[in-house]
């Protein structure tokens, strides 16, 4: 079998990988309104722990795979205005919803009715976006198109330096978080 797989095998893996993702999100307690909202209130750091660890472990492994010719980059366009504006809008919605799209779907599976109602909202949001897309494309997405840019290109620092900095920041943050829980 040569990689990457395609066709029916990839569709089977889509369900399996999605299943693993949903399982992990639920086990990590991030498929939960309380966990996500309390992250933004600095009362619970589970979201930060999961995301930073995933980015570090995933990033170093994917970098090695790419260096070894076993994977390719999938960099999204840095249409900076659209990404910053979209991310900002997303942050507001995420706190009101108490989920991000992936954790919402896993939470629906675990019985969350408000996640399911918000899912209908997400579908409507997707429809409204598609309807407004031609205008956004010409007036927002077209502004400040930096292309498929990566941080090494932006900062002049190497991949390993950036991962080193990220790992150091993450470990310091994790130690500080765990120390603050000394009373538990």
């Amino acid at each position: 079998m040569s990689l990457p797989v395609s066709g029916t095998a990839a569709l089977v893996l889509a369900v399996l990988f999605g299943f693993a993702f949903g399982w992990l999100l639920h086990r990590g307690r991030v498929a939960s309104f309380d966990t996500i909202v309390n992250q933004f209130r600095f009362k619970d750091f589970t979201v930060l722990k999961v995301m930073l660890t995933a980015i570090l472990v995933g990033g170093i492994g994917v970098l090695a795979l790419i260096d070894g010719g076993m994977a390719k980059y999938h960099i999204k366009d840095a249409n900076i205005l659209a990404v910053a504006l979209g991310g900002g809008i997303f942050g507001i919605g995420m706190v009101l919803y108490g989920y991000c799209p992936g954790t919402a779907i896993a939470a629906m599976g675990s019985g969350s009715i408000h996640a399911a109602v918000g899912f209908v909202g997400m579908i409507l949001g997707g429809i409204l976006y598609a309807l407004s897309y031609p205008w956004l494309r010409d007036n927002v997405i077209s502004v400040a198109k930096w292309g498929k840019m990566r941080l090494p290109e932006l900062t002049g620092l190497s991949d390993l330096t950036l991962f080193g900095i990220l790992a150091a920041v993450a470990i310091l943050a994790f130690v500080a978080i765990e120390r603050s829980r000394r009373t538990a």
Partner: peptide, 8 residues
């Protein structure tokens, strides 16, 4: 919230 998050 779901609507806003998806749009963003």
């Amino acid at each position: 919230g779901g609507l806003i998050a998806m749009y963003g």
